[in-house]
C-alpha cells in the first residue's frame, strides 16, 4: 500500500482496488473501454446497476454490463467517485486567488492540454476572464454530464458533488458556449422536477441575462425551449427585485405588477 497513514486508509484501499482492478467480479464495458470493478463497491451505490447484477437478465449471469449509450470518460468519472468519493473536472479556479507558485502547475497543464499559449490572468468572481475560463468551461460540461449519469444510475452523492463542482466553475465560465451547452443538457437529459443543478445554472443565467442574450446560441436555446426561457426570465427578475444573496424568488405579484414588464 502506498500510504500507510491510518487516516486515509479507507479511500486509499478502494482507490488501489480501482486502479489495480484486482479481485474484480464485475465488468463494465463502454464503447470499447473495459472497467474491471467490484460489485460490492459499485452495486451498493447504484440500485440500477445492482438490479442488473442481481436480476435474472443476461447481465446477471455474465456479470458484464455494456453501457453502450454512455460516454466512457463520464463513466470513468462516475467510477472514480464510487471508489474515491471524488473525480477531476479539469477546473483549476479553486486555487486562483492564491500565490503564484500555486498557479504554476495549472499553467503547465494548460499548455500540455490545449497547446495554446495564454497569459495567466488572475480572475475574480465579478470580472469574468476570457483566458483561463476555458478550464472552467470544460468543467461545466463535464460536471453536467456527470450529473446526468448520476441521475440515470441513481447515485445521489455524485449528484451533489457534481453540483458543487459546477458551482465552483460557473462564475468563471458563464459567458461561454459551454455554459449554454450545459443548460441545454440539463433541460434535455434530466426531468424538470430535478432542481438541484438546474437552480444553480438558471440563477447564473438570470444574473447575466443581459450579456447572454447577445450570444446566438443562448437566444436559440431560449427560443427552442420556452420553459427554460421562462425560468431564466423569472430568475433575472428575482435578482432585480430581491437582494442577490437571497436564494428565494420574489413573489408572483411583485413582478407581475412591475412597470418594467
Amino acid at each position: 500500500m502506498a500510504t500507510p497513514s491510518t487516516l486515509d486508509q479507507g479511500p486509499s484501499v478502494t482507490a488501489s482496488m480501482y486502479s489495480s482492478g484486482k479481485y474484480s467480479d464485475m465488468t463494465i464495458i463502454c464503447k470499447g473501454k473495459t472497467f474491471k470493478v467490484h460489485q460490492c463497491i459499485v452495486c451498493l451505490q447504484s440500485k440500477p446497476l445492482a438490479a442488473a447484477m442481481d436480476g435474472k437478465f443476461k447481465e446477471g449471469t455474465s456479470k458484464e454490463i455494456d453501457l453502450e449509450d454512455d460516454a466512457p470518460e463520464i463513466v470513468e468519472k462516475m467510477l472514480s467517485y464510487m471508489y474515491t468519493l471524488d473525480y477531476t473536472d479539469g477546473n483549476q479556479s479553486i486555487i486562483v486567488d492564491s500565490t503564484e507558485t500555486a498557479m504554476t502547475p495549472a499553467k503547465t497543464k494548460f499548455h500540455k492540454k490545449s497547446g495554446r499559449t495564454i497569459e495567466f490572468v488572475p480572475s475574480s468572481i465579478t470580472a469574468p476572464p476570457s483566458g483561463l475560463s476555458q478550464f472552467s468551461a470544460d468543467a461545466l460540461l463535464t460536471n453536467t454530464r456527470v450529473f446526468v449519469i448520476a441521475d440515470k444510475y441513481d447515485i445521489q452523492g455524485l449528484k451533489q458533488l457534481a453540483t458543487k463542482k459546477y458551482k465552483v466553475a460557473v462564475p468563471n465560465a458563464w459567458n461561454c458556449t459551454e455554459f449554454v451547452g450545459s443548460l441545454r443538457l440539463l433541460y434535455e437529459e434530466t426531468l424538470e422536477s430535478d432542481r438541484l443543478l438546474k437552480d444553480v445554472a438558471v440563477k447564473t443565467a438570470g444574473k447575466h441575462v443581459k450579456d447572454l442574450v447577445d450570444r446566438g446560441e443562448f437566444a436559440a436555446l431560449c427560443r427552442l425551449n420556452g420553459e427554460l426561457g421562462f425560468e431564466i426570465l423569472r430568475a433575472s427578475l428575482t435578482i432585480k427585485t430581491c437582494c442577490p444573496s437571497c436564494q428565494g424568488y420574489g413573489s408572483v405579484e411583485t413582478y407581475d405588477n412591475a412597470t418594467w414588464y
Binding site: 438490479a51 435474472k56 455494456d66 426531468l191
Partner: peptide, 21 residues
C-alpha cells in the same frame, strides 16, 4: 425467459421514455 435479455437495454429504454416525459 429473461436470461437472454439485456437489462441495460431495457433500463435505458424506460429511462429514455421517462426523460421524454
Amino acid at each position: 425467459n429473461a436470461s437472454k435479455l439485456s437489462f441495460e437495454q431495457l433500463y435505458r429504454a424506460s429511462y429514455k421514455i421517462v426523460l421524454k416525459k
